[in-house]
Every structure is written in structure tokens, then in C-alpha cells.
């Protein structure tokens, strides 16, 4: 089983990112669950979502304590939340950032999702859309296939700029 924890702020699309990722994994022929952790959410507050991907049906409902990977959609969350908590040694951290970030003991990647969204003019209610480009970045490192990533995005959003943003994120992401 591959377990991912997504950190974001309320309203940034972290829950939809989890859903897109699980849907893409299902299209790959795998089993997947996406579960937002529901606390007292408000717009702008730090939130987490969980994604599990496996070859067998998933029977776990409790929260992910030892993720294989952590995704940070908003780097400012790192000032208030220990995003590395429980991350397996050698696990991967992907941060939405224009600059490289180093996390000792982990594989560190970055991609400027915000910049890509702005370039594609993917902005809703003043916020750049991060959840479709991040799926492209995840396809680049093989978490889901590129075809399934695009299919999941197209089934969810009609605007083709979302697919273009995902392609751009795959190209720009540091390995």
C-alpha cells in the first residue's frame, strides 16, 4: 500500500487533489481511497487529506500515521504544521515552490504549481488552481500513469487548460 498525506489550506483544493489522485489510480486498475480529515474547517486554515493506493481492496479508515509521501500545496503551512511528522525514512516530500527545498533523510522535490496555474490563467475566486497541475507532477514520478491522470482530470473538469497545466507541471517538476 502507498500512503500519501496532502497538506493545504482550506479552499486551495487539497480535497479535490486527493479525489483526482484516487480516481486516476482507479483508472490504472488499482484500489484507492481519498479521505479528507474533517475538523472545524474554514477557508485558509491548514487542512490534511489522505490518499491510499493498493493492489487489493483497502479496509483501513483511520488516518495515515506513517505516510510514504507528503505533498505540501502551500509552503506557508510548514511554518505552523510539522509536515514531516511520521513520514517514512527515505519517503518523498513534494512542495509547491519555485525553489528547491532540502529535507534531510527524505527525497525532496519541488514544482511551482502556483506559477503554472497563473500562467494558464487557472484562477477561481482569486485563488490559483493547484489540484490539477499537482496530478501531472505525480504522474511524472509514476504514482499514477499519465493517461489515467489526464482521464481523471477530464472527467472532473471540462476546461482543457487543466490538462495543459498538468503537462506543464510534469515537465517542470524536479525529479
Amino acid at each position: 500500500m502507498f500512503e500519501i498525506r496532502i497538506h493545504s489550506r482550506g479552499g486551495q483544493g487539497g480535497v479535490t487533489a486527493a479525489r483526482l489522485l484516487a480516481l486516476a489510480a482507479i483508472h490504472d486498475g488499482k484500489y484507492a481511497t481519498a479521505a479528507p480529515f474533517y475538523g472545524a474547517e474554514r477557508r485558509g486554515a491548514p487542512i490534511v487529506s489522505f490518499v491510499r493506493i493498493d493492489d487489493k481492496p483497502i479496509r483501513i479508515y483511520s488516518q495515515i500515521k506513517k505516510p510514504d509521501m507528503v505533498i505540501v500545496l502551500d509552503a506557508s503551512v510548514m511554518d505552523v504544521v510539522d509536515v514531516l511528522q511520521g513520514l517514512k525514512s527515505g519517503g518523498r516530500v513534494l512542495v509547491n515552490s519555485a525553489h528547491a527545498r532540502e529535507f534531510k533523510g527524505f527525497t525532496s522535490s519541488h514544482v511551482d504549481l502556483t506559477g503554472i496555474a497563473l500562467k494558464e490563467n487557472l484562477v477561481v475566486a482569486g485563488s490559483p488552481i493547484l489540484n490539477t497541475p499537482v496530478i501531472g507532477a505525480l504522474a511524472k514520478i509514476g504514482i499514477v500513469s499519465v493517461d489515467s491522470a489526464k482521464r481523471a482530470i477530464r472527467e472532473t473538469f471540462t476546461d482543457e487548460r487543466n490538462v495543459k497545466a498538468a503537462e506543464a507541471a510534469a515537465k517542470e517538476m524536479s525529479a
Binding site: A18, A22, A32, T33, A34, A35, P36, I58, Y61
Partner: peptide, 11 residues
């Protein structure tokens, strides 16, 4: 189950 099942996304 509230949230655990009502809000989880599965196939």
C-alpha cells in the same frame, strides 16, 4: 458512519 464513510471517496 459519519465522515468516515459518508465523506470518504472509494470506487
Amino acid at each position: 458512519d459519519g465522515f468516515l464513510l459518508s465523506h470518504i471517496m472509494q470506487p
